[in-house]
Computed example of a mutant assay.
Amino acid sequence: MAQKIPATVITGFLGAGKTSLIRHMVENANGKKLAFLINEFGDLGIDKEMLVGCGIEGCTDEDVIELANGCICCTVADDFLPSMEALLDRDDKPDHILIETSGLALPKPLVKAFNWPEIRAQVTVDGVITVVDSKAVKEGRFADDEDAVQKMREADENLDHDNPLEEVFEDQLLCADMVVLNKADLLDNDEMSTIETELKKTLRDGVRFVHSSSEKKVDPTVLLGMNAAAEDDLDARHSHHDHDHDDDDHDHDHHHDHNHDEFESFTVQLGDVDDADAFQAKIIDIVKEHDVLRVKGFIHRPGVERREVIQGVGPRFNRYFDRAWNDGETRQTQLVVIGQHGLDQAAIEAALKA
C-alpha cells in the first residue's frame, strides 16, 4: 500500500503572484522532490543553473524540465490527466505535486478531477491555496491588470465567458483552504485587516490568511506541510520554541529562516482512536476555533494493522492508510499542529484530548 502523494492546487488571477510563490517553493525544496504542473515555463524564470534536460523517453523539453535539485516541472497544455499520469508513472515519484491553475480557470473542476480512479489511488488533495493581490483588492480591483485578465479570458475558448471576473474571484475564494495575501508590504496593518474582514465573508469557516511579499515569502512548510510530519522522526522534531536560542545550528543552510518566524508548530501524542470520523470532526472544530493553518500526523486505530495518515489545510481534511506499523514502532496517534505565532498550545491539546 503506497504512500499517497499530496497535491496542492494553487489558484489566483494573473499577476496575483502565483509564479513567484511557486519559484520560492522550487528554491526552498530542501531535498524534497516536488513536481510542478504549470501553464507556462517561461513565466517561472528559474535560473538556468537549476535546469537539467528531461530524462523521460518520448518527452520533449517543451513539456517537462527537470531541475538540478530534483524537482520536475511539467506544462499542462491541454489536459490535466495525461500530465498527471506521466508524473505518476515515473520511477522516482515526487514527494508533493503542485498544480497551478490558469489564472482564470475555476479550481473546482480540477479538484473533481482528482476523483478519477487512476489518480485517486495514488494522489490525495492536500489543499487549495488561493493567491490574492492585496493591493489590487484594496483599490477595488481583483487583479493588477484586469484588462489583461479579461483579454486572456476571451482568448481561451475553454472558459465560460458569462462569468464576470467578480464571480471567478468569488469561486477562487470559496474553494480556498488557505489564502495567501500577496504584496502585503504595500499596505499597512489596518488596510490588511480591512481586506481580511471583507474577504472573510466569502471564505468557508476555518480558512486562514497568510501574508506574503517580495521581502517576506511564506514558509513552504505552511503551504505544503512538507517537513511538518516527516515520516518517522516525529519524536526527534521539536517545536520552534526549542530553537529560539540555538538558531545557529537549526537549519543553518536555510537563510530565509528569519522571515518565517510568524509560524510555529508543536506535536501532540494521543491515545488510540476508535472513531476516526469523530476524531477528524473534532480536529476541524479546533481548526475553526484557533489559528491553526494545518494539521498532519498519524492515527492509531485499535485492531487495525495499518497506520492511518490524517492531514488537513484549513477546514479540508483527508485520511488514508499508508503502511503497516513496523515491528517495534510505538503505535500511537501523533499530530503536528502548525499555525500562526501565538497558538494556544494548552487549549488545543486539551480540546484534542477531551
Rank of each mutant, 00 (worst) to 15 (best):
A113F: 01
R306W: 09
Q311V: 06
D133Y: 05
L104D: 00
V295A: 04
L174K: 15
D47F: 06
D277P: 04
L174G: 14
H24L: 10
N30F: 05
C54A: 10
L335W: 00
F169T: 02
D43S: 14
K282I: 06
T130P: 13
N39D: 09
A136T: 01
I46S: 09
L187M: 04
A236M: 09
M192R: 03
M226R: 05
A324D: 14
E349P: 07
V287R: 02
A155M: 14
S239A: 08
K138V: 05
T330E: 08
G12N: 01
V222L: 05
A324P: 11
H250G: 10
L173A: 06
I46E: 11
A7S: 13
H254Q: 09
I56S: 08
H250T: 12
L44E: 04
R294K: 05
D156P: 04
A7F: 05
S134Y: 02
A35G: 04
Q3G: 14
I99F: 15
A148H: 11
E62D: 14
E40L: 07
I56R: 06
G303Q: 03
H300L: 02
L51P: 02
E167C: 11
I284T: 14
C175M: 15
D162P: 04
H256P: 02
Q3A: 14
A176N: 00
E170M: 12
S213G: 05
F263T: 15
E49M: 07
F142D: 01
E170K: 15
I284S: 07
G328H: 09
H250F: 15
E154V: 13
N318E: 12
L186S: 02
T197G: 13
V123H: 00
W116I: 09
R307G: 03
L352W: 11
V125S: 03
K4P: 14
K288L: 13
I348Y: 05
A77D: 01
T101D: 02
F317S: 06
S134K: 00
E215F: 05
A346K: 14
G58P: 03
N259T: 14
K200M: 12
M152D: 07
D242I: 00
N28W: 03
L224K: 02
D285W: 07
I284N: 11
Q172M: 15
K108W: 04
N189C: 08
A155Q: 10
G42Y: 07
K4I: 12
G55Q: 04
I338H: 00
K138M: 12
A347I: 08
D327K: 05
L165P: 02
I5G: 04
